[in-house]
Each structure stands twice: as C-alpha cells, then as structure tokens.
C-alpha cells in the first residue's frame, strides 16, 4: 500500500513538472514592448507549458488594464501617477513596480562637428525649430539637419518627454525608421544631429554630453544623465506563480542581456 501511495505521489509530481503551465497577459507601453516581446519569447521557449500574450497600447493602457484586472503585468515607461495609485487602491489593486531596464538616449552628431557639449534647453530649441544654425549653439556655423524617429517609435516618445517637455519635433526633421538608420544618416551628414538609444552609439558618430553629463551606462544607471529614465513592469502586489517566474527571468542576467539587445541599459 505504501509503495502504491509513493508511486502515485511520484506520478503526480512528475505530471506537475512536465505539464506545469499557465498564462500571462502583458499590456502597456510601446517603449517597453520590445523587452516584453523578446523576454516572453525566450521564456516561452524555455517553458513550453506557459503562454504569454503581449500587447502595446501605451503606459496609461497598461496601468489601466492592471487596475481593471485585465492583465497580469502592466508595462509603463513612466512611474504610475498618484491618481492611478488612488484608483488602484480603491479597486483593491496594489501596484508593485519592477524596474526592468533603463532607457538612455544619446544625442549624436557627425564626428567632424566641433560641438562638444549642449544644454538641454538648446537641445529643445534645436529639435523644436527655434535654433536652426550651429553658430547659435557655439558651433562653426551651418544649417542644422535634424534627424528624428517616426512618431510610432518608443525612442521618439521618450525623447519628446525627456528632452522636449512634450513638444513635437520640428516639421522639417528627417524621420528615420530605426535607431540604426538615425546613426547611419548622422554618420554621413556633417550638419546632422540625431538621437539614439545608448546601445546604438558607434565610433562613426559623436555622442555629445547634455548639461555636461556624458551618456554612458554608468550615468544612465545612476540617473545623472538628463535623458534617462527607468522602465517599469507593474504587477498586482508581489508576483506569484508563473508571473513571478517570468519577472525573475526578466530581471535575471539573461533577461537584462535581452533588454540590452533591444537598445536599453540593463541592470546587471
């Protein structure tokens, strides 16, 4: 009898191990979306019984979905607002913030450009069209060619929020579809200025300090660099079960490496 019970327990344990599964729904920030997508793909590959559904919609949608109970993880490229916390608490939801990476946006110019620094104020003036010649910011003169990302880009959204205080880029800025494209065009255009994720800065372009702070992994991680921000995934309280397993994976060295491959600054 004892052997039968032990056998049944072993079979039960084996079944649980083999067929352990579950599902996770993730919604929110388009900036965090690439991290969520790539980490969930690898996580599902490693855990075939677990199904993860990832959708964008923006930070507000992610947090609203968490509050409404329609997702397990709400992605946000900003901290939750006081109003949202109050609404969550009223709904019995306890938003728990997880920093999953840092976003650092480097300002780049052509290597021949004599500019070695720029203030955040001048940067805003350049990208919104108030300044259009390099001589107005201490350069040797010449028309400034502004490179920007298309408005669907998370990097564009981040730059607009961090550098332009919500203003849009000038209407004659040249829009590029990727970070690589911005870096590539800037490297070939002497009068150009653009912005890319820190991971896309190469020797072909010159990254210039903003407000005297260089864009490096260290200054982004310390929050010193003005164009940096933490990226969040929010759960309802401390995560449990498959959600915890997934969050642990995102924060692991492997997960953070995947985040860096998407152009973000990992925390490991």
């Amino acid at each position: 009898m004892k052997k039968i019970l032990l056998s049944l327990m072993a079979v039960s344990l084996f079944t649980n191990m083999v067929f352990a599964g579950g599902s996770i729904t993730i919604a929110g920030s388009t900036t965090v979306l690439p991290i969520a997508q790539v980490t969930s793909e690898v996580f599902m590959d490693n855990n075939p019984g677990i199904d993860i559904s990832v959708r964008g919609g923006g930070s507000s949608v992610g947090i609203a979905s968490l509050i409404a109970g329609t997702c397990d993880i709400g992605d946000a490229s900003r901290a939750i607002k006081d109003k949202e916390i109050a609404k969550a608490v009223d709904n019995g939801i306890q938003p728990k913030a997880h920093v999953v990476a840092m976003d650092g946006i480097a300002v780049i110019v052509h290597p021949s450009n004599g500019i070695n620094k720029i203030s955040k104020k001048d940067l805003k003036s350049i990208f919104t069209g108030k300044i259009s010649d390099w001589s107005q910011v201490g350069g040797s003169g010449g028309k400034i060619v502004v490179m920007s990302r298309d408005s669907a880009s998370g990097t564009y959204e981040a730059f607009m929020g961090l550098a332009l205080d919500g203003s849009k880029t000038r209407s004659d800025s040249l829009l590029q579809a990727s970070n690589q494209a911005v870096a590539s065009v800037v490297s070939r255009t002497p009068g150009a200025i653009g912005y890319v994720g820190l991971g896309y800065v190469t020797s072909q372009v010159k990254s210039i300090p903003v407000n005297g702070i260089e864009c490096t992994k260290a200054t982004v991680l310390s929050g010193e660099y003005p164009l940096s921000r933490p990226l969040f995934m929010y759960t309802n309280g401390e995560p449990e079960g498959v959600v915890k397993e997934y969050m642990d994976f995102v924060k692991s060295a492997e997960g953070q490496k995947l985040a860096e491959e998407q152009g973000f600054v990992g925390l490991k």
Partner: peptide
C-alpha cells in the same frame, strides 16, 4: 553597484507611494 542603487531607490520610492495611498 549603481544598477542596484537605481533599482532599490526607484522601487522603494514606488512601494512607499503605494503604501502611502493605502
């Protein structure tokens, strides 16, 4: 490490905002 510092400061601040609301 700076990354741990950033993590601790940010998450603690966010936790405290939620605790404050509660």
């Amino acid at each position: 490490k700076p990354a741990d510092a950033q993590l601790i400061l940010t998450e603690t601040k966010e936790d405290n905002r939620v605790k404050m609301a509660q």
